[in-house]
């Protein structure tokens, strides 16, 4: 009763899978494009002197970290259009959801990076007459970003994994395509195995790179003065 594998059906549909992969990368990339700057912005609000501003940013972060991404996606896809009487297609809903969601996580990465920079660096900048903005742009952020790269890569991996949720609102990402092909060919075993492998071969090198960088940064000890 051994199962007869047949990968031919998968390869016959390689164009559909490729399209799915491109769509997956598209949602991931565009969400990052919005999510990272938004995350920096939220982190700066979180670090603001004003308690009121800082707390609001905190609530934003906590809310999006403490609700499931799929619920957020559904809310934006099903609820937003009715509330504002607008049409939102699955692609836009995904971009909105993942930009906001990842920004909450990126904000935490930025914040951790920035507070890891010694206070003396801020003071040295101020002491030569720099404004807060100049110190951030020229002194502290460049140092923080270097330390944040592994955490960034990790977040990117998580984001890409999370984009599979868009299949639940029928956006044709890699998983959605797989499901489609599996249903048409009655070969879910082959299709889902191949698709899992496709995800693996995109994500694994990224994770290896993230760990390598982390180790290198740990070894170099991030030598600041003193």
């Amino acid at each position: 009763m051994s199962y007869e594998w047949d990968f031919a059906v998968v390869f016959q549909n390689y164009d559909l899978l490729l399209l799915g992969l491109i769509n997956t990368l598209n949602v991931t990339g565009v969400s990052l494009l919005f999510g990272i700057p938004l995350g920096l912005f939220v982190a700066l609000l979180r670090l603001a002197d004003s308690k009121w501003v800082s707390r609001s940013a905190g609530i934003f972060i906590e809310f999006f970290r403490s609700t499931p991404p799929l619920v957020q996606l559904f809310w934006i896809f099903f609820v937003l259009p009715i509330l504002f009487d607008i049409a939102i297609d699955p692609y836009s809903a995904s971009i909105i959801a993942f930009s906001i969601q990842s920004s909450a996580f990126f904000a935490e990465v930025f914040r951790a990076g920035l507070i890891s920079i010694d206070r003396g660096q801020w003071e040295a900048g101020y002491a030569i007459g720099m404004t807060r903005k100049q110190v951030l742009r020229r002194v502290t952020l460049p140092q923080a970003v270097k330390r944040m790269i592994p955490a960034f890569l990790e977040r990117i991996i998580e984001l890409m994994k999370t984009t599979t949720l868009v299949s639940a609102i029928s956006y044709s990402d890699l998983l959605f395509q797989a499901n489609d092909i599996a249903q048409q060919t009655y070969r879910p075993l082959e299709v889902f195995s191949v698709v899992a492998a496709m995800y693996f071969f995109v994500l694994w090198p990224t994770s290896v790179a993230a760990r390598g960088l982390e180790r290198r940064l740990a070894v170099s000890g991030e030598s600041t003065a003193a």
């Binding site: 660096q121 003071e123 007459g129 404004t131």
Partner: peptide, 29 residues
Amino acid sequence: CKVRTQVGMVFQHFNLFPHMKVLENVMEG
């Protein structure tokens, strides 16, 4: 910021900018 351009300060822990070369550190201000 204007005042601080007229007052120079040297810190206990130097606080040089580690991501800039020595020349760039001095040029920065």
